[in-house]
C-alpha cells in the first residue's frame, strides 16, 4: 500500500507540471494585452515599456515561467492587476469559501444520493425505482442557476426566511461558524447539491442493481445470510466505485459553481474567476485556475488511493 501511495505521488508530479505550464501559457495565448486594461489610453510607449518591465513581461518566456514558479514556491502568485492586492490572498480566501460551499453541498448530496440510489437499486423496477429515477433525471437536467433563482424567490423574497446574497451578514467575507453565517450557506448549498444528488443516486442505483443480480448474492442467501448481511455485502462491493464518483463530484463542485456563486454573490473561486475574466485580470485568473486545477488533481489522487485501499481487486503493488 505504501509503495502504491509513493508511486501515485510520483505520477502526480508530471501532471502538476503540465497544469502549471498550461496555466502559465494561458496568459500568453489570451488575446489582447493585459496592460491595456490598466494603462491610460494615452500612455506613451516609454510608460508602457516601464509597466511591462515592472510586471516582468519583457523577459523571455522560459525565464518568466521560471520566475513565476520560483515565486509560486514562496507563496507569491503576483498581484491582481485590478485591485493590486496579492493574488495568493484573494485566491485562498475565495477557495476557502468555495470549499466550504462544496463540502456543504456534498454533505447534503452524498448521503441522500447514496440512500436514494440504494433504495432504487434494491427495489428495481418498482414504483420506488421509477420515482427515484425520475427525480434524479429531473435534478440532473434542471439548470441549477435557475433553481437557485427559484429558491431565492420562494425562501428569500416571498417567505423571507433565508438571506439570498453573500457569505455572511452585511457582505462579510470572513467565515464564522455561527447561525448568522450559516443561514447564508443554506440556499446556495442546497442548490448546488441537486445535481450531485441525481448523479450519485443514478450511479449507486446502477451499482446496487447490478451487484444484486450477481450470483454471489444468491450464494449469500444460500449460506443463511439475512437481508441486512446481504445489503452490507452489496454496499462493500459498491463502495469503491461510488466513492470515486463522489470524489469527482466534489471536484466539480469546487470549480463548477461559477453560476451558483454568481447567483448568490458567494465570494468563492467561481465568483473570483468570473470577476477575473471580465476584468481581464490575468494574474488573478492564472492563480485561480492553477489552484483549482491542482485541487482537482489532488482530489483525483485521494480518490484513487482511497479506492485502492478499499477494493482488493485493484492492483496495489
Amino acid at each position: 500500500m505504501l509503495s502504491y501511495l509513493i508511486r501515485r505521488l510520483i505520477l502526480v508530479l508530471p501532471v502538476a507540471f503540465g497544469v502549471s505550464v498550461i496555466c502559465f501559457m494561458l496568459v500568453q495565448i489570451a488575446p489582447g494585452d493585459p496592460l491595456t486594461a490598466i494603462m491610460p489610453i494615452d500612455a506613451t510607449a516609454e510608460e508602457q515599456a516601464a509597466m511591462r518591465a515592472a510586471y516582468g513581461l519583457d523577459k523571455p518566456l522560459a525565464v518568466q515561467y521560471a520566475i513565476w514558479i520560483g515565486n509560486l514556491a514562496q507563496g507569491d502568485m503576483g498581484k491582481s492587476i485590478a485591485t493590486g492586492r496579492p493574488v495568493a490572498a484573494e485566491v485562498f480566501g475565495a477557495v476557502n469559501n468555495s470549499l466550504l460551499l462544496a463540502a456543504s453541498a456534498a454533505v447534503i448530496a452524498f448521503p441522500i444520493g447514496v440512500f436514494l440510489g440504494f433504495l432504487a437499486g434494491y427495489f428495481r423496477d418498482t414504483w420506488i425505482d421509477r420515482a427515484v429515477t425520475a427525480a434524479s433525471i429531473t435534478g440532473v437536467s434542471l439548470p441549477n442557476y435557475w433553481l437557485g433563482i427559484v429558491l431565492v424567490i420562494i425562501f428569500s423574497v416571498n417567505l423571507g426566511w433565508l438571506p439570498s446574497m453573500g457569505a455572511g451578514p452585511g457582505g462579510s467575507q470572513a467565515w464564522v461558524w455561527n447561525w448568522e453565517h450559516m443561514r447564508h450557506l443554506i440556499l446556495p448549498a442546497v442548490t448546488l447539491s441537486v445535481v450531485p444528488i441525481g448523479i450519485v443516486a443514478r450511479t449507486v442505483r446502477a451499482l446496487a442493481g447490478d451487484i444484486l443480480t450477481q450470483d454471489f448474492v444468491q450464494a449469500l442467501y444460500a449460506k443463511g445470510m439475512t437481508r441486512m448481511d446481504v445489503l452490507w455485502h452489496v454496499a462493500r462491493n459498491a463502495a469503491a466505485t461510488a466513492l470515486s464518483v463522489m470524489g469527482l463530484q466534489l471536484g466539480y463542485l469546487l470549480g463548477g459553481s461559477i453560476l451558483i456563486e454568481t447567483v448568490f454573490n458567494w465570494p468563492g473561486s467561481g465568483f473570483l474567476l468570473s470577476n477575473a475574466i471580465f476584468q481581464r485580470d490575468l494574474p488573478l485568473l492564472q492563480g485561480t485556475i492553477l489552484v483549482l486545477a491542482l485541487l482537482f488533481v489532488a482530489m483525483n489522487l485521494i480518490v484513487d488511493v482511497a479506492q485502492a485501499a478499499i477494493d482488493p481487486r485493484i492492483q496495489r503493488t
Partner: peptide, 19 residues
C-alpha cells in the same frame, strides 16, 4: 440455509464475494 442444507455452486468465481 447453510446450517441444515448448504450448496456448492457451478461457478465458484461468481459465487464468492470478490471484496
Amino acid at each position: 440455509r447453510g446450517g441444515e442444507v448448504s450448496m456448492v455452486f457451478q461457478e465458484p468465481a461468481l459465487a464468492l464475494d470478490p471484496v
